[in-house]
Design a binder for these strands. Structure first.
Lengths: 219, 219
DNA sequence: CTGAGTCTGTTAGCTGGAAAACATTTGTTG
DNA sequence: CAACAAATGTTTTCCAGCTAACAGACTCAG
């Protein structure tokens, strides 16, 4: 799984001089929207939020990435200006590897199996965003919120008494950004869910109860 | 540009036995949503529409692909069932190369430069869909329609008298699917645009006038 | 303990655009 | 050239969800 462990660190360092292991605290940015960034990142440990800030000042969260995922890759073509369209922000402490464009390209072209892995990863990511697009165009906020909560439970849930507690703490605003809705609506729906016993939550903790799992849409 | 021309056809055929050159008429499907398809396609010539049919029976067009683009690639992981989430439909006659999964994987892992090209292509596609998502969440149908028309003019426009004539013929329904809106709204807005002199169109022909180009949003 | 800052809960009002329905125009075919 | 189908134009109705605005509640620093 870990491409950087198949060999010693020194070997890597010699072959790809720009490689470095770094780490960032909660809320820090790997890169920001508008930055000129030509690095490739591989998350060793932690969660990274990819989001976009709109002109109107709304934040739209594209996805949450976790251990093993990759970001930043390549700005396509040589003509395009290398400006990032999203923010990549640490949610909690994040450790990651970082590689410059040239070395990354070298890596891809020389390590065939790795290139396949990365291709799969990007493609999966693309599919995920297509699903999100679909959801936004066809489902109500309520439905999208359920799906999102279940997804979060699967990705970041830790088994507890009556369900899965999320290991990340999200404000309702962040949840709203994640499903592409306004905060007040999320607040109201969250309450309904709590009343129906699907959810337990406090300010810094969300727990998706097992009863909610039965609501998975059979498509 | 054409990866399959760097060598003779026979050599390719021997190395990757599943490779084949095929072509389909207008409206035919390369594959359909729900199909079990493990092929990779490379468009040699023509335009392909990627779309998704929702439960409610609405069609949502994800993107239009043209010569040089690739689709279908890989269904990620071995665990996922290989079911396609979209339709890939020819818009006009389409010629394409087709390769089975195993050969495609072999191709990727053995042809480094190719794998880089493909990665770029998938990534570009991902970025495009993210932009679309953003547009839908932040812009009015009118704005999205302008942007779409300009984009179409750039991709498929042929220079004419007062602007760019689209070489593909799109119904208003198809346009609506493309911007994620309802048909009546598109119809009304198209009329407004025509009255303002930004557009000329008949049933089977759309021409984006130069005056419309001045409306490109300065972001 | 007090006040500032942040998050959550709730209400009221407004509106973009979806849905449905129908009329009109254009193209096609026996 | 009917007459049928397909695309376009237009109107009406309706509502999900956004915005704005404010009132608790909780948290933390001094």
């Amino acid at each position: 799984m870990n491409p950087f462990l198949s060999c010693t660190w020194e070997t890597w360092k010699k072959e790809y001089p720009s490689i470095q292991l770094a780490s960032l605290p909660d809320k820090a940015f790997l890169y920001r929207q508008g930055d000129r960034c030509s690095s490739f990142f591989w998350i060793k440990n932690g969660i990274v939020k990819l989001s976009h800030l709109t002109k109107q000042g709304n934040e739209l969260t594209l996805t949450l990435l976790k251990t093993g995922d990759i970001i930043g890759y390549l700005q396509v073509g040589d003509f395009t200006n290398q400006i990032m369209e999203e923010n990549a922000q640490a949610l909690g402490k994040v450790d990651f590897y970082r590689l410059e464009y040239i070395d990354f390209k070298k890596l891809i072209t020389s390590q065939a199996n790795l290139s396949w892995q990365i291709l799969e990863s990007v493609y999966a990511h693309k599919q995920q965003i297509e699903r999100k697009l679909r959801a936004i165009l066809t489902q109500s906020v309520e439905q999208r919120l359920i799906v999102m909560l279940l997804e979060l439970a699967k990705l970041f849930g830790i088994r507890c008494m009556h369900g899965y507690a999320l290991e990340i703490s999200l404000t309702q605003q962040e949840l709203a950004d994640l499903v592409g809705a306004s905060r007040p609506v999320i607040s109201t729906i969250m309450n309904q869910f709590r009343n129906r016993g699907m959810l337990d939550y406090t300010r810094e903790h969300i727990c998706v109860n097992d009863t909610a799992l039965s609501l998975i849409d059979p498509r």
